[in-house]
C-alpha cells in the first residue's frame, strides 16, 4: 500500500474541466417489477464521483443505496439515463465485456460479505487474483500480505465460519483491495466492526481513495466514520438530495480527530443539476 499513499487531493467544488470523474451518473432511473407491483427505486440520479476521493453515500434504509451501487458496478441494468465508469459508458458494453471490465477495474465489499465458505481467509482474498489468472502461489502470497494490512495476519488459514463477523468483514475488505482496483465499491464496510476496527478500515479505504486515478464509494449509516469521507451524498426517495464536502479539518482528519463529534455540517454546495 505504501506507493498508494495519497499524493494529490482533489477538492470538492473544483472546476468541471479537471480530470474526468471516476463515475458520472446522469438521470439514471431503475425500477423493479412490472404493472401494479412496479417500484421505481432510482428516480433520476445525478452524481459524480471524482478521481482521488472517498465519497460517502448515506440515506434512509430502503432508499436505494445498494441499488445505486449495483448500477454503478454494472451488475444491474438501468432503465434510463447515462452512466460512465472510468470514462467507459457501461450500459453500452455487451454483457461479457462488462464482466471483464468490472473484474479489471472494480473491487467490492458486499453488505453481506459473500465469502466462499469452503475457502480459507487467504484463499478467499486470492479469488479476484485467481479470476484474473494470477498463479495460485503468487495470489495466496499477495492475499496474505493484504490480510496483514487489515490486521488478520494470524487468521489466514481460517475458514469464514471460524471467524467473527468483524473478521469476516475485514477478509471481504482485503479481498476487495487485493487486486488494487481503481474503483472500490463498499456497501456498509464497517457495519460489523467495532469503533476501533471500523476506524482502521476506513483509514485504509481513505488512503485508497486518495490515490491518484482511484476512487472509493462507501455506503454507510455510521456517523462515526463520516470524517473519513471527502464528500457526502445523501440519497433520499430515489434522488440525490444533497452533496456536501466534509470540512478539511475532519476530512484530512488526524487520526486523533474526535469521532463522536463528526456530524457533517449541513453545507450544501452542490445541488444535482
Amino acid at each position: 500500500m505504501e506507493r498508494d499513499m495519497p499524493t494529490a487531493t482533489v477538492h470538492a467544488g473544483e472546476a468541471p474541466e479537471g480530470p474526468p470523474p471516476a463515475v458520472r451518473v446522469r438521470g439514471v432511473v431503475k425500477s423493479f417489477g412490472a404493472g401494479d407491483t412496479k417500484v421505481t427505486v432510482l428516480k433520476g440520479i445525478d452524481l459524480d464521483v471524482r478521481m482521488g476521493e472517498l465519497l460517502l453515500l448515506v440515506g434512509e434504509s430502503g432508499g436505494g443505496k445498494t441499488t445505486l451501487l449495483s448500477v454503478i458496478a454494472g451488475i444491474l441494468d438501468i432503465d434510463a439515463g447515462q452512466l460512465d465508469v472510468l470514462g467507459v459508458p457501461l450500459p453500452q458494453l455487451p454483457g461479457g465485456k462488462k464482466t471483464t471490465f468490472r473484474g479489471r477495474t472494480m473491487g467490492f465489499i458486499f453488505q453481506q460479505f459473500n465469502l466462499l465458505p469452503a475457502l480459507t481467509a487467504a484463499e478467499n482474498v486470492a479469488v479476484p487474483l485467481l479470476i484474473h489468472g494470477t498463479p495460485k502461489k503468487d495470489a495466496i502470497r499477495r492475499a496474505r500480505t493484504m490480510l496483514e494490512t487489515v490486521g488478520l495476519g494470524d487468521r489466514t488459514e481460517f475458514v469464514p465460519a471460524k471467524l467473527s463477523g468483524g473478521q469476516q468483514q475485514r477478509v471481504a475488505i482485503a479481498r476487495a483491495l487485493v487486486s488494487e482496483p481503481r474503483l472500490l465499491i463498499c456497501d456498509e464496510p464497517t457495519a460489523a466492526l467495532d469503533g476501533e476496527n471500523g476506524q482502521k478500515i476506513m483509514a485504509i479505504l481513505r488512503d485508497v481513495g486518495r490515490s491518484p486515478g482511484r476512487a472509493v464509494i462507501v455506503v454507510t449509516h455510521d456517523s462515526r466514520i463520516f470524517h473519513f469521507g471527502d464528500r457526502i451524498a445523501e440519497l433520499t426517495d430515489g434522488r440525490i438530495v444533497r452533496v456536501h464536502s466534509v470540512p478539511a479539518a475532519h476530512s484530512r482528519g488526524a487520526p486523533g480527530a474526535d469521532a463522536a463529534s463528526t456530524e457533517p455540517p449541513p453545507a450544501p454546495e452542490e445541488s444535482p443539476s
Partner: peptide
C-alpha cells in the same frame, strides 16, 4: 448460486 454470483460480480466470466 450466490457464491457463483459473487464470483461473477468479481469479474469471473460465465465461461469460467
Amino acid at each position: 448460486l450466490k457464491q457463483f454470483g459473487a464470483l461473477k460480480a468479481m469479474g469471473a466470466s460465465t465461461f469460467a
